[in-house]
């Protein structure tokens, strides 16, 4: 397995404040990596170090095989970056903005224009290519900033909150683009607060708060909370079946809501048939039985809370 990013003890301090403490990461090439953490956790500092914008105080990193510190120009040439704010020239047109940045990424004028056309069409901005960016809506500016990050076809793309300010349809286009980039073998480093989005897109998720708290796949992170439960929706008052459920030996915990019993089980797949049989045997009329899954948001909040 090759890694797009490998860091070892990567740290950055600002005076007495340690923003990033001994970060060890290995992000496989061609994956979508979610970097989650609260505001002020040091995510931007980490991204800035990995894009060779700021120097680490200590530690080392290799980005696409290039060493941070000695191959910084190579790193900048090979990665694309969507910054926290779009950072576009309001007086210039969308096309002029893209041609300018494209040329800074060593594209010829013709190449930059060709690439700009391809991505502006993909993001439905081609008709507005000659309009000053100052007239663009927040969502259009965000789309243009994404186009800028992809213009030179980087192998590694850093995206900071890519769907912020976008309407659901465009946000879907962005997510589809991220999936398409992954299918092309590119690596995406995604910083986001949108946890369902991270859950949908990411192969690997890091939960970060100054230091790495957890690093795993979304499924394994959920399994850490392992509160496996079955939700049984019944006709009538669910309290009528409380005693029946509590009498079963494999039930770990029971919570009641207005029309449902949330039953924590040792092994739902094995225990569910017996549970349902017991309830039906006791006269319960069951409307639905569904697994109670743990969301990434619950996992995130729990792990950040513990930290």
């Amino acid at each position: 397995m090759t890694f797009a990013i490998e860091t070892e003890g990567l740290s950055r301090s600002f005076g007495k404040l340690t923003a990033v403490e001994r970060l060890d990461l290995a992000i496989p090439s061609g994956s979508v990596f979610g970097f989650l953490g609260p505001n002020g956790a040091g995510k931007t500092t980490t991204v800035r170090m990995l894009t060779a914008l700021i120097k680490p105080s200590s530690g080392s990193a290799r980005v696409l095989g290039h060493s941070l510190g000695s191959d910084d120009q190579q790193i900048r040439r090979s990665v694309g970056m969507l910054t926290e704010t779009p950072g576009l020239y309001d007086k210039l047109s969308a096309l002029q903005n893209l041609v300018f940045f494209g040329r800074l990424y060593d594209l010829s004028r013709a190449e930059a224009e060709k690439q700009a056309e391809h991505y502006l069409r993909l993001f439905d901005l081609w008709e507005r290519r000659n309009d000053p960016v100052g007239r663009f809506s927040k969502g259009m500016r965000q789309k243009l900033a994404i186009v800028r990050a992809l213009l030179h076809e980087p192998k590694l793309v850093f995206l900071d909150e890519p769907t912020v300010g976008l309407d659901p349809e465009v946000a879907r286009t962005v997510r589809d683009t991220i999936k398409q980039l992954r299918s092309q073998g590119r690596t995406i480093f995604l910083t986001t607060h949108n946890l369902p989005e991270a859950d949908e897109l990411c192969d690997l998720i890091a939960i970060f708060r100054g230091k790495l708290l957890h690093l795993d796949t979304p499924d394994r992170l959920r399994a850490r909370l392992a509160n496996q439960a079955t939700l049984v929706r019944v006709v009538g008052d669910p309290r009528a079946w409380q005693a029946t459920v509590q009498a079963l030996p494999f039930v770990r915990d029971l919570r009641l809501s207005e029309d449902a019993l949330e039953i924590s089980l040792a092994d739902p797949e094995r225990n569910n048939p017996a549970l349902i049989a017991a309830l039906v045997g006791a006269g319960a009329q069951i409307r639905y039985v569904e697994p109670r899954t743990t969301t990434l948001e619950e996992v995130y909040l729990k792990l950040i809370g513990e930290a």
Binding site: P86, G87, L88, R148
Partner: peptide, 14 residues
């Protein structure tokens, strides 16, 4: 002010 410096600095311009 326009926060355009960071995207420029992220490019391979010296």
């Amino acid at each position: 002010n326009n926060r355009t410096l960071e995207p420029i600095l992220a490019t391979p311009i010296t």
